[in-house]
């Protein structure tokens, strides 16, 4: 009888412990560090390659650049400068801690691109146009147990391609790569007219670094 009670208590405690640690992990996974963001034109989609072969256009995969975007702990607004994007827009509402809206994030990326000496050039305009397209539709969610990102809102878009490419060896909120086809053809056309370069979408590599000093990789 007593043995059974003790066993039950132990099980309860274990469950509680697991729950506690999980909630702690979920809390820790709220984004408050640095997000490394790298954008390529023409990511690795089969569809894009097929299109390219059909239209005999050359679609190379080209890196735009890698920028580090600081994620605020308490969703403060980041000044009133036109170049900086308000971080509270990027991170959605306060209650959805780990949600990232891809549109404003891409706009923040474009802001960084413009700040770092390139100015508001054709690539900047293309990025902001894409950001406008994505706004309010696509969200990035930290999944339960802090395992992986999940991309929401892409299903509504026209893409037979799997929109979410994830490098498999990464777990937790550390690294992922996303392919985002840009559905509005006029954006692409405007870009290719101005730059003689054909783009059909963006690949976005994200990598998250926590702001904890020791956390290269939390175990």
């Amino acid at each position: 009888m007593l043995l059974g009670f003790i066993t039950l208590l132990a099980v309860c405690l274990a469950v509680l412990g697991i729950y506690q640690s999980r909630s702690a992990r979920l809390y820790a996974n709220r984004m408050s560090g640095v997000l490394q963001m790298e954008v390529w034109f023409n990511g690795k989609t089969v569809e894009a390659r097929k299109k390219a072969q059909e239209s005999k256009k050359f679609y190379p995969r080209v890196s735009v650049g890698r920028y580090y975007i600081l994620l605020p702990k308490e969703y403060r607004s980041a000044g009133g400068n036109a170049d900086t994007v308000k971080m509270q827009d990027v991170f959605g509402k306060k209650k959805q801690a780990a949600d990232i809206l891809m549109g404003p994030l891409l706009a923040a990326y474009a802001g960084c691109y413009a700040c770092s000496g390139f100015g508001q050039d054709i690539i900047f305009r293309y990025l902001t146009d894409c950001a406008g397209e994505l706004a309010g539709k696509v969200r990035l969610q930290g999944m339960e147990q802090g395992k992986r990102f999940r991309l929401c809102g892409v299903e509504a878009m026209m893409s037979p391609e799997k929109p979410f490419v994830l490098s498999e060896q990464m777990d937790r909120l550390e690294k992922c790569a996303i392919y985002l086809p840009v559905p509005d053809g006029s954006v692409n056309d405007r870009f290719s007219e101005a730059s003689e370069f054909h783009a059909c979408g963006l690949e976005i590599g994200l990598r998250y670094f926590s702001d904890k000093a020791d956390s290269g990789r939390r175990g």
Binding site: S32, G33, V34, L70, L71, P72, K73, R76, A78, G79, N81, D83, T84, M87, G111, C112, C115, D211, K212, A213
Partner: peptide, 10 residues
């Protein structure tokens, strides 16, 4: 860029 947001740790 003007003063980057984020905590000291970040």
């Amino acid at each position: 860029q003007d003063g980057l947001p984020g905590g000291e740790n970040a």
